[in-house]
């Protein structure tokens, strides 16, 4: 077993375990923190796969995103501390079966499909960033611009939905 294989397996396992913890704890703040740890473990997994740029981006982005999510959890949940052990689930059996079947189907595809030859050479971190930058500014520029505009549109739409509607006085 190589060191890379060990670390990919370790961080993959950590990501899945914290993903399970998200739905096992009664405390919603702990749920948000578990999701933060899960996403950070995936970022570490990317770093283990030598995808430096994506790994660092994942850790930075998810740390911010999950911190915001934790604040929303405290705002919106009836029992954010989880002291009342209130069960907030439904159709548990159906969900478990569907989740398990999805997992098994995806594993079967992963194991039994012939993915072709594994790459022997791999660009270093600096070259990866250069390649991605050139990709963003050449062939994928339109997609990248579309992604930016879509984020901007969704931010404006989300703000418009969230702001309190102004009550206008009706003219007599």
């Amino acid at each position: 077993m190589t060191a890379q294989m060990f670390f990919i397996g370790f961080f993959g396992l950590a990501g899945v375990w914290f993903g399970i913890v998200v739905f096992r704890t009664y405390s919603m703040v702990r749920s948000a923190l578990a999701l933060l740890f899960s996403q950070t473990a995936l970022g570490a997994m990317f770093l283990s796969m030598e995808a430096e740029f994506l790994g660092v981006l994942q850790i930075m982005m998810m740390a911010t995103e999950m911190s915001i999510m934790a604040i929303f959890m405290v705002m919106f949940m009836m029992d954010p501390g989880g002291l009342g052990t209130m069960d907030m689930t439904h159709q548990k059996r159906l969900s478990l079966i569907t989740g398990f079947v999805s997992f098994v189907a995806a594993v079967l595809v992963a194991v039994f499909v012939d993915w072709g030859p594994v790459a022997t050479s791999f660009p270093d971190a600096a070259q990866q960033t250069v390649d991605l930058g050139l990709e963003l500014l050449n062939r994928s520029m339109l997609i990248f611009e579309m992604a930016g505009v879509t984020i901007l549109t969704s931010m404006i739409a989300a703000t418009a939905v969230a702001i309190q509607p102004v009550k206008r006085k009706q003219k007599q």
Partner: peptide, 15 residues
């Protein structure tokens, strides 16, 4: 290993 981890995350997310 990576694909199985991804499959497990997918299953947990669906649940």
């Amino acid at each position: 290993i990576a694909l199985v981890s991804g499959a497990a995350l997918f299953g947990v997310g669906i649940y």
